[in-house]
């Protein structure tokens, strides 16, 4: 168990491509941090630098009190779970889980005891003598987890460990992993491109885009007060509505349509962000939306339409049998996020 500190960590690949721009953050002991971002944004690169599988081009990495920039992966006191599980196909589950311990010259009885402990925790007792090829995807995932926990590491690293599982199993494993991490109290860094996973599992989320950290915060923070338009559109499904707007004389408008905000300190062009669920149908509302399409999602219905020529979506309950056509709506309090129209950064 340990605190992890990254300062100005940078990755430049040998071909000159900068995959991670200088990034700094701390992970307190026992925290579950999720690195999330679109494909190719540098999440894996970041994780692999922490693991020691990729050289750190610049910056300092500390795990616990130790600077580990040049420490071998095996000696960083970490354990990693890979997307494709990376189980040794020729070894039984027992051997797979115990291999790391065996290499550390721990004696046989001790290994056996630890493997049993882990397998019991993960419900793998009946499978100890099977080969990975004789297991289901979920079971393989558990073996990979087992391999990580027997080593009693200071830090867990996960690289999209659930993306090969079907939706239902993914939900289940999500909870299992989180519960296990809680129970063991081990610091964890978890990489995913799935924002639902990020929201549900994280103590803190780090949103990355194109090699840069866009925002670090609790799931609630990141969801409610996105720092950039990128975070606003990446987190949440359906994503936040982003519309070009304008502030003049302290009044906010989308096209000619006024939005119920007065006395704003800014002026000029802005990007307006509103979560689809923060817009409520309201006969006395002062905003009119032209609904053109209704999407049925079971528990919810998603209304797609336009406001002043710009696309907008509204999230309503399944009982709200609204149809296409003009719809009057109002906004929940504090529903509007404002971003700089050019930089995309949040305006206070």
């Amino acid at each position: 168990m340990a605190q992890v500190t990254l300062s100005e960590i940078t990755k430049v690949y040998p071909n000159g491509f900068t995959a991670v721009h200088p990034a700094s953050f701390d992970i307190p002991d026992g925290e579950f941090v999720v690195l999330v971002g679109p494909s190719g944004c540098g999440k894996s690169t970041m994780l692999r630098m922490i693991a020691g599988l990729e050289d750190i081009s610049q910056g300092d990495l500390n795990i616990g009190t130790r600077q580990v920039n040049n420490v071998d992966p095996a000696d960083r006191d970490i354990a990693m779970v890979f997307q494709n599980y990376a189980l040794y196909p020729h070894m039984s589950v027992r051997k797979n889980i115990g291999y790391g311990l065996k290499n550390r010259k721990i004696d046989k009885d001790e290994i056996d005891r630890k493997v049993r402990e882990a397998s019991t925790m993960l419900n793998l007792d009946d499978y100890l003598d099977r080969k990975p090829s004789q297991l289901s995807g979920g079971q393989r995932q558990r073996v990979a987890m087992g391999r990580a926990i027997v080593r009693d590491p200071a830090l867990f690293l996960f690289d999209e460990p659930l993306s090969n599982l079907d939706a239902k199993l993914r939900t289940q494993m999500r909870i299992e992993i989180k519960a296990l991490q809680r129970r063991l109290g081990v610091t964890a860094v978890y990489v995913t491109h799935d924002q639902v996973e990020a929201m549900t599992m994280a103590d803190r989320i780090i949103v990355m885009n194109e090699g840069r950290i866009e925002q670090i915060g609790t799931p609630v923070d990141v969801y409610n007060t996105p720092e950039t338009t990128f975070v606003a559109s990446f987190m949440g499904a359906p994503p936040m509505n982003l519309m070009a707007g304008n502030i003049a004389g302290g009044k906010l408008r989308v096209g000619e349509e006024p939005i119920a905000y007065d006395n704003l300190p800014h002026s000029g062009d802005v990007t307006i962000g509103i979560r689809p669920e923060d817009i409520v149908p309201d006969e006395r509302g002062d905003i009119t939306i032209d609904v053109t399409l209704v999407e049925e999602l079971g528990a919810h219905r998603l209304l797609h339409g336009t406001i002043a020529g710009q696309d907008i979506s509204i999230h309503v309950d399944k009982d709200n049998m609204i149809n296409t056509g003009a719809l009057r709506v109002s906004l929940k309090p504090n529903a509007v996020s404002l971003f700089d129209a050019i930089t995309g950064k949040r305006l206070t």
Binding site: G52, L53, P73, A79, M80, F82, A86, P89, Y99, R147
Partner: peptide, 29 residues
């Protein structure tokens, strides 16, 4: 042979010789 397997072995503390004997040779059977 997938890269991840090699990386897993590295994290498990298998040096070049152990990796060859414990992983590569059995896989190449």
């Amino acid at each position: 042979i997938p890269e991840e397997l090699i990386e897993a072995a590295r994290i498990d503390g298998a040096g070049p010789f152990k990796f060859f004997v414990d992983i590569l040779v059995p896989l190449s059977q």
